[in-house]
């Protein structure tokens, strides 16, 4: 019974990490940048949702839609204010800027909404019982959204003209510009999508993680770890890596003291990366190539 409970909570934990990891993947594939503010964008999304709920909006799906739109707009502003001014100084400057804005988001959120996590209503209360397995409807929704986003991203990046243009712009901006791709617009779209995804994720996970609080940095680290484990450049790898991380964390916590879990998981990650430097799915892609 407990193993099943832990598997369910591990899958949800992994799905939450996956939502952050997909943001890393999206930005990395489309722009070549690692955006370390991804976890705190999730927190900002949850807090925006909380503000709407406190204003009396009680249809959570509508809240999610409004927060998604707000996230898309914030992403465009994020690109203009954080990425654009630093991109000419190289990737390290841009990455450093994302780390800086991560701290701004975290402390700004505390100043506006307070430092503690706040309860947030789920889309649908209750649990689904299948034999001994009990799965919250909110957990199910998060799983479904992760799968949906992953399929959407795979199609966008692999099959669509816009997606291929984005990847081309990230791989070789000069060549992409020479063939008529508007590199700046592609980058803005990438950051808008990443912020929108993070904001939506914030509303979805807040009933479980609480809205706000100090979780942003931890989400960033775990999302990044999951993405690197699976292979940052592979949509499937990112999902598998993040979910695997969540399940392993959850199951390990049941058999060893909690304080040992993170060190063991991160040491295991280092070993995996020594053997497979591009992550679990990165290596496979290389072999296939």
């Amino acid at each position: 019974m407990r193993i099943i409970d832990l598997l369910v909570s591990g899958l949800t934990l992994g799905a939450i990490y996956a939502l952050v990891a997909l943001g890393f993947h999206l930005v990395y594939r489309m722009t070549g940048v690692l955006d370390f503010a991804q976890g705190d964008k999730v927190i900002i999304g949850g807090l925006l949702g909380l503000t709407l709920v406190r204003q009396g909006l009680d249809t959570i799906l509508l809240v999610a839609l409004l927060v998604l739109i707000a996230g898309l707009l914030l992403g465009i502003a994020y690109d203009a204010l954080v990425i654009l001014p630093t991109q000419n100084n190289g990737h390290i400057a841009t990455i450093a800027a994302t780390v800086g804005i991560m701290l701004v988001f975290a402390n700004g959120g505390h100043l506006i909404w307070g430092p503690d996590g706040k309860p947030f209503p789920p889309v649908h209360r209750g649990v689904l019982e299948i034999g001994e397995m009990r799965i919250g409807y909110q957990d199910l929704l998060i799983w479904v959204v992760v799968i949906g986003v992953a399929i959407g991203l795979a199609l966008l990046l692999g099959r669509s003209r816009v997606g291929r243009g984005m990847v081309a712009a990230a791989t070789d901006p000069l060549a992409a510009q020479a063939v008529g791709i508007n590199v700046s617009r592609m980058r803005a779209i990438a950051f808008a999508l990443a912020f929108g995804l993070a904001a939506l994720a914030g509303v979805l996970v807040a009933p479980i993680t609480l809205a706000g609080g100090t979780l942003g940095t931890a989400l960033t680290l775990k999302g990044f770890t999951g993405a690197v484990l699976g292979g940052l450049a592979s949509t499937r790898g990112v999902i598998v890596g993040a979910v695997l991380l969540g399940v392993i964390e959850s199951e390990l916590a049941a058999v060893i003291p909690n304080s040992y879990v993170d060190p063991i998981v991160l040491i295991a990650l280092i070993i995996v990366l020594l053997v497979m430097p591009n992550g679990l799915f990165g290596l496979r892609r290389q072999r296939l190539a």
Binding site: S9, L13, T209, L210, A218, S250
Partner: peptide, 12 residues
């Protein structure tokens, strides 16, 4: 059993 106050899942 200890728990990390920075986390949110304490099922284990």
């Amino acid at each position: 059993e200890g728990f990390d106050p920075g986390k949110f899942d304490f099922t284990a």
